[in-house]
Nucleic acid binder design. Structure first.
Ligand SMILES: [Mn+2]
Ligand SMILES: [Mn+2]
Ligand SMILES: [Mn+2]
Ligand SMILES: [Mn+2]
Lengths: 217, 217
DNA sequence: TTTAATTTTTAGGTATGCCTAAATTTAATA
DNA sequence: TATTAAATTTAGGCATACCTAAAAATTAAA
């Protein structure tokens, strides 16, 4: 059995591994988890003792097979709860993360399987992220960041990388939603501003915004 | 802000106060919370410092106005979640208590108000217990225990006192459910066995069982 | 390759929420 | 009322999960 804190660490290690496929550093973990490097060191020892991670002093950490399995379970719970909050309780997509952050730690496999059924076995959450099934399987997203597209290409917005409140509210304000078709009209080479067409309207996005939008071409 | 443990103490003090309207003893709390009297003493000091209870050494404890308000909030959450689990996720009434015991600690007033609306503002939970509204108001149950009825009287089962798994499964096995009409046919004075008629069938209940059934006459 | 900067760990400390064993207070009994 | 029993508190410890400050290891720069 893992504590809430251990679960948060494992989830974060998983997400940091996903980005760059090397071992995860103490400082990066501390940064993401809003804690201090010395606290991370403490926790990595504990997780290592529980065989959830491999850890060598000064060399960073990686999830074990067991740890990866646990991480995916927690992510499944998080995304199912987010889906519940948006689909059933009418929350907006920028309000659900913090609540799901708590709900993901509720212990009951029966609860999750019944929630999954109640929601009709969804395969993506409100942010377009895939929801692992009960065996931990989920489709790898063969998605391209808008920032990597070239002029003239187009795609459907399938997920967002950043799920922070300000970013999601920016999208809402500009009426950009998952499922929308987006055309890349022009990319200014100098400042990397993206001119797009969306719902028959033109607008300009910074590269930072474009980087956080994933399209399925 | 209260910790999960503090919330559990407050809820239990509320429930013990409800039964006998005197102050709640350290040992009774320890018993109910599956902990040791010395741990209770520690916690009562902390709750007293937070103005959630009044506490005098060796004299027991009582909730403050603030504590009572908090207790009712937690009970509201617990019962709304139990209702959700039974009504929406198809759990049976004997499976929901332990899960609600966790869910009641999720912090988000918006979540509870939206859950309440989603459930259609229910006023009783699956065990017939009243659900406080957002202002903490709930109807006092003017219910009589079956054990206090006399021969010839009848009533509708509106709630159960004991919500333990074995008791609820006993009721299921004997097809006794909330909403059922029950007639008291006979009470054996010597061993206090209750002969009842229920769904046109006669059956015999021990006084212990009868004590845990509340009827609305 | 020596020095400097950065990263990471260690040492020592705090608050929470438990525990056991011993002391103290209160209640019950003789 | 004196004695005994029961309830409660105190003392001292333990595990978790943090923290700051200092030391050690690694990496980058000169
Ligand atoms: Mn979390
Ligand atoms: Mn999400
Ligand atoms: Mn609880
Ligand atoms: Mn209930």
């Amino acid at each position: 059995m893992l504590t809430q804190s251990e679960e948060n660490y494992i989830k974060e290690i998983f997400s940091l591994e996903d980005d760059r496929n090397i071992s995860v550093s103490t400082n990066d973990l501390a940064e993401k988890l809003n804690t201090k490097p010395s606290s991370v060191t403490d926790m990595l020892r504990k997780l290592s003792a529980k065989d959830m991670v491999s850890y060598t002093k000064y060399k960073g950490t990686n999830l074990s097979e067991l740890g990866r399995k646990k991480a995916i379970e927690i992510i499944r719970k998080h995304r199912l709860w987010e889906t519940f909050l948006v689909e059933k309780l009418n929350f907006s997509w920028d309000e659900v993360h913090d609540i799901a952050e708590q709900l993901e730690h509720i212990q009951s496999t029966q609860l999750i399987s019944k929630l999954d059924a109640f929601l009709g076995h969804p395969d993506v959450d409100p942010h377009g992220d895939p929801i692992p099934d009960e065996h931990g399987r989920f489709q790898l997203k063969k998605q391209t960041s808008l920032a990597d597209l070239s002029i003239g290409s187009q795609g459907v917005l399938v997920s967002v990388k950043d799920s922070s409140v300000p970013f999601l509210q920016y999208l809402d304000k500009n009426q950009i939603a998952i499922g929308d078709l987006i055309h890349v009209i022009d990319i200014e080479p100098f400042d990397r501003l993206f001119a797009i067409e969306h719902k028959s309207k033109r607008m300009v996005l910074s590269e930072n915004i474009a980087r956080n939008l994933y399209l399925n071409q």
